[in-house]
């Protein structure tokens, strides 16, 4: 029973990571594009990128924590 919960939790955590990976990947790609177009604004773009990535990561980590809760460690 516990093992099965763990597996389901692992799938949940994996899904959360998938979403976050897509989101952060898009942010990174767009940021690099932005920097390539406007290299003078690299510093500002980087800061905005890190903040946006952190916000997405936060949501994904909620998923991971819910997975941890489900795993009943």
């Amino acid at each position: 029973m516990t093992g099965m919960f763990g597996s389901i939790a692992a799938i949940g955590a994996g899904l959360a990571v998938l979403g976050a990976g897509l989101g952060i990947g898009r942010i990174g790609g767009s940021a690099v594009e932005g920097i390539a177009r406007n290299p003078e604004a690299a510093g500002k773009i980087q800061t905005a990128m890190i903040i946006a990535a952190a916000l997405i990561e936060g949501v994904a980590l909620f998923g991971v924590v819910v997975g941890l809760l489900g795993a009943k460690a």
Binding site: A54, E57, G58, L61
Partner: peptide, 10 residues
């Protein structure tokens, strides 16, 4: 709450 979870999880 997101701050808490982010640091903890990372």
């Amino acid at each position: 709450f997101a701050l808490m979870i982010r640091l903890f999880a990372n």
